[in-house]
Structures are given as C-alpha cells and as structure tokens.
C-alpha cells in the first residue's frame, strides 16, 4: 500500500486520523439512516433521503482527504493544552445538567459558576460556590419572575418564593 518515495515520512498525525475515522462513522450513519427512509421523490426524483445521502458521501470523501493529510502530517501545529481547566469546565456543565431538576437552577448553576472560576484560577471552591449560588439566584429571580422565562425551581427557590 504505502509508497516509500517520500522518505523519511513526516510525522503521522494520530489525532487527525481519529478525526477521519469519526467522519467515516458520521457519514456511515447518514447513509444508513437515509437507506431506511421511504424515498417519496415524486416528480423530482429527489426525496427526503437524497440530501442526507449526498452529505453522507461528502463526509466519507472528506474523511479520506483528512486521512491523507494526516498521514502526510499536513495538519497545523497545535498549541499544547492544559487538560485540568478544560475538565473542570466540562465537569461543571455536567454537574449542572444532572442537578438542574433535582436542586433547581440556582444551586446547579452556582456549581457551574464555581467550577468555571476554578478553571480560570479562582481555586477556593468554599468561597466561589456560595458566590455562584447567590449570583445564580439573583439571575433566576430576575429572569423567571420579571421576564417570565421558565427556569426550573428547586428547594432554594421554593424557600424564598414559596409560590414559585
């Protein structure tokens, strides 16, 4: 398969190869899903399955192109990343998602607030979580009571606004 004309090969970009594989999967899912649709093309011959099919094939083609660029090492240099701050923010969003309907908007969002602040260097969670909850509660009060936005209420919100 490989032609060793360009020796030594430039660094092979494994991460970019994973992206190519991901594109193959997405393209495959699109083709699989469009195969299952009844194609009611009617006069035009172009039905609901046509565009997903084209996009699916295009993604497959782009995956092949990505793989070639990855093998040739054509992807741009990536700045080194600090993993922990990124994970703190992801954890904050995940925590908010899971707590939202149990603990209500203020507590769930306060935790997101504190985790994000920690990712950017405010490390003292014992201080930032209460600040976050108070801030989120003020925001909740303004948006749900004044602007009539539907934001989930929890024990804290029910305590202060008993009628919700």
């Amino acid at each position: 398969m490989s032609v060793n004309r360009h020796e030594p090969p430039r660094r092979r970009d494994t991460a970019a190869l994973i992206i190519a594989a991901g594109l193959v999967v997405i393209g495959g899912v699109m083709l699989w899903d469009s195969a299952r649709l009844a194609d009611l093309g009617g006069y035009s011959g172009v039905g609901p399955a046509s565009v997903p099919r084209v996009v699916g094939f295009a993604l497959m083609g782009l995956a092949a192109w990505t793989a070639i660029e990855a093998l040739r090492g054509d992807f741009p240099q990536r700045a080194p990343q600090n993993a922990p701050p990124v994970l703190w923010i992801v954890a904050g969003l995940a925590a908010q998602l899971m707590l939202l309907h149990v603990a209500g908007f203020s507590i769930a969002t306060g935790i997101l607030f504190a985790f994000t602040a920690r990712a950017f260097g405010k490390r003292n969670l014992a201080m930032t979580i209460p600040i976050g909850i108070v801030f989120a509660f003020v925001v909740w009060a303004i948006f749900s009571q004044l602007l009539m936005l539907h934001l989930p209420a929890g024990p804290l919100e029910h305590l202060i606004f008993p009628r919700g």
Partner: peptide, 29 residues
Amino acid sequence: PWLYAGILLFATLGTIGANPSAFELGMLL
C-alpha cells in the same frame, strides 16, 4: 475567572430558558 464564569452562566441560562431539559443541556455540552 468571574468573566468566563458569568459567560457560561448566561450561556446555560439561554439554553435552559428556551427548553429546560437535561437533553438540551447535554447537547450544549
């Protein structure tokens, strides 16, 4: 830290306000 914490607070507020479901927040993430 406060700036980005605030940005994410309002980002999720918008999403929750439009559709208060865990599914929508999962998509956001």
